[in-house]
Design a protein around this nucleic acid. Structure first.
Lengths: 438, 438
DNA sequence: ATGTAGGCGCTACGCCGACAA
DNA sequence: TTGTCGGCGTAGCGCCTACAT
């Protein structure tokens, strides 16, 4: 066979009983992705679910798809179950969630208490590198960033010349991959050589994709991939029309809503434009406890692509932001690692970038099909001209208004020791009443 | 990059406006697959459609999927449009059909006239070979069966030593592939060498898969693949649950039936256990004009897998059969080619095998969800013990009862010159009132 | 007639520093 | 610190025939 399967021990795919490591899943999903806690109450948006299908099939929802008047634009649900999976073909991570719409009485109750969810397990001791052309070329191996190798790879025996060892890493499907890890060259550097190229070709990695290494609790090295945002990764839909898919999720939600019975959805964070299962508390806070109006300034988090970040930094017009989950990350990492706060904060900051914009309108995204929906009800204009491909509409819970004053002061006095770059808006305090979201 | 793309000229996938060659599509779909004629009336079976999803997602339809009482088990439809496609990733062929349920009055009319469909264009001048281990190994090229090369490849210039030429073939996506075609060795043979291996690796072909070459009307060489029946080709459904998919097709059909509006379905002949869009005439004939009863013997066509055929032939218990469309094939080929009838018939026969069995019962497959459905209403027992994986239930239009006498004599007196193998049931006449069905 | 294997030339895979950036 | 390149040794790709079935 052409594609060598050396180092690849096939697993029975049917079973899939093995539970995917949660931290590996989150690492592959990306830093901004969070899953609501099992047992908590969430809000489900058929529109957002539909957008995931549209983005995957690369086809907009057709006009002749019937309306579901009985299906409200948002469904308050009990989240019964969440399981993490990875696509057999692509290693894309996705989550399966079992939702149960609340009955009318429960829905009323839902607005009363502030629900405390548990923050999702964000990985702590891992590293993620975006592959360069050299990394994916057949000419050589993989250049390991120095700090990453020292942080997550087992220490080398430096009495050897050159120092080297065999690394065994398990991917999302529990297949083993073996790599030769060597420390050589002038100046000295960490490299993965033998075994690397078969991995690259088997996973069909290209420059721009990312790989990440992480330890599990059983002291095993895990290995995940995060593919670059392809222009469009067309899903093979040779078996069901995209229209039927749209209808399918609507019908499933409508039936569940009508009977208050459970239904199942798949959330693919890399394929979906936005999260469409939101913690109830986050939704309530954004919709009922935050005042927004046209003309208001806001900011919103995005995942980093190195290139754009550097460019923006040079232009001096990007605000880095720390919020919500990051606090959890920082605290836990500071406890575990003996690294300086500032260094750690800057490490984490490197994964995010926030863009600023102005609210230009508040209206229904689809007044016919989904009147009075909060999904993408906010029309926005982005500051950067480079943000041409950003969504012109966002949902309230995705943005952070800037003109409202912080209601509480931060419990975690984050102060940068170096001066705040001139021309940037001042950091405003981090709210502590985040209600446990994320 | 690891996978060389030499000989691969990328096409814009978004457009997909180019129309797929019909004969190539049918060649890839296999000899038993036929598409109803555009404009004709057909019967659509939600159950069969559901089976296609189940087979693709490798997941049975869940019990908690709601019923669609308003959706009958079969829908008589006008077939407005049929387009042929091929999966970008796998080259799997599939068809997109636009159906419109007939209103009640039209439904009644439908049972009156016998509708004459046009037989689908089955390829005539082509060849198909199942790849051997040598064909797919990196050690060498592709061994072209002699008759195939002489029939479909351009004639070689035998003044050259050795005779050789460059073949250019276009795949289902109109990508060009170049192969060196050479006639050498002792004894002499046709081989594809340079260019073959990149094709094998790009298409990820393995031993057991088939390739086929065919000419289009513009005198271009076309190239398709037919993958072996993998144990299960799990569809990447990281974006929509199989439950939602089942619901989706039901909802689409129910909505279309309720409003007599058009809907769209995908038919993937290699993934679907059975055809679920049947020419109306074929349905009517099988259901209303054929008497079947428990204990009756029947036979049914299947596609050939060489190995099983050889084994069965040795056991002397297989009946090869010619029926319906085959007549069309034979006649057109005899006109075009100057090959003897017997030779041609035996060539075509090699693509089919029919298994025999006994009807053991007639009942609803799913009495709760789909009462009074003709879908797989016939419970059968197969003669061969090797047919353990065959469906225990079939539909009336899939089988050919043997105890009924032929209603008409054959217009095409097919007589084998060699004696009919002893122990085999006698050939019965071929019916001419096939109403254009395939 | 055609699947497989041995022989063997040569491409390109992949391991190594040397350089910048 | 790390991306890319020139260098090179060699595994294995791929073209040929021989042989068996």
């Amino acid at each position: 066979m052409r594609l060598s399967s050396a180092g690849f021990s096939p697993q029975p795919p049917e079973g899939e009983k093995r539970v995917l490591n949660s931290e590996l899943w989150h690492a592959c999903a990306g830093p901004l992705v969070s899953l609501p806690a099992v047992g908590s109450r969430v809000v489900y948006f058929p529109q957002g679910h539909s957008e995931q299908v549209a983005a995957s099939t690369n086809k907009e929802v057709d006009a002749h798809i019937p309306n579901y008047p009985s299906l409200p634009p948002q469904l308050i649900c009990q989240l019964h179950n969440v399981t993490m999976h990875a696509d057999i073909e692509t290693d894309e991570v996705y989550a399966q969630m079992t939702l149960q719409p609340l009955n009318p009485q429960e829905q009323k109750d839902a607005y009363l208490p502030a629900e405390l969810g548990t923050p999702s397990k964000q990985p702590t001791n891992y590293f993620c590198k975006t592959l360069t052309a050299s990394d994916t070329s057949t000419h050589g191996g993989f250049s390991v960033p120095r700090r990453a190798a020292e942080k997550v790879f087992p220490p080398l025996d430096f009495s050897l010349q050159p120092p080297a060892q065999e690394l065994i890493a398990r991917d999302l499907h529990d297949n083993e991959w073996k790599f030769r890890h060597i420390f050589r060259g002038q100046p000295k550097r960490h490299l993965l050589t033998t075994g690397w190229s078969v991995f690259v070709s088997a996973k069909r990695l290209v420059a721009g994709d990312s790989v990440l290494f992480i330890w599990n609790e059983k002291n095993q090295l895990l290995l995940g991939i995060r593919r670059a945002n392809r222009p469009q990764t067309v899903m093979p839909s040779s078996v069901l029309s995209s229209d039927s898919m749209h209808l399918g999720l609507l019908a499933a939600a409508a039936h569940a809503a009508a009977t208050n019975s459970r239904f199942t959805i798949f959330y693919n964070p890399r394929a979906s434009p936005s999260e469409f299962v939101i913690p109830l508390a986050k939704y309530i806070k954004a919709v009922y406890h935050t005042r927004v109006s046209v003309g208001m300034r806001f900011r919103m988090l995005f995942e980093t692509e190195e290139s754009s970040v550097r460019r923006e930094l040079q232009m001096g017009c990007v605000v880095k932001d720390v919020k919500n989950v990051l606090l959890h990350n920082i605290e836990s990492q500071i406890e575990r690692l003996s690294v300086g706060k500032l260094q750690l904060v800057s490490m984490i900051l490197d994964s995010y970038v926030s863009y600023m914009g102005t609210i230009t309108g508040i209206s229904d995204l689809d007044p016919v099909r989904w009147p009075n929906s909060h999904w993408r009800s906010v029309k926005v204009g982005w500051d950067e001209s480079t943000a041409g491909d950003r969504q012109p509409r966002v949902s309230l819970w995705e943005i952070e208004p800037l003109t409202t004053f912080p209601m509480y002061s931060s419990p975690f006095p984050l102060r940068l020791k170096r001066p705040w770059p001139p021309g940037l808006p001042a950091f405003h305090g981090i709210k502590e009443d985040d209600l446990g979201m994320n």
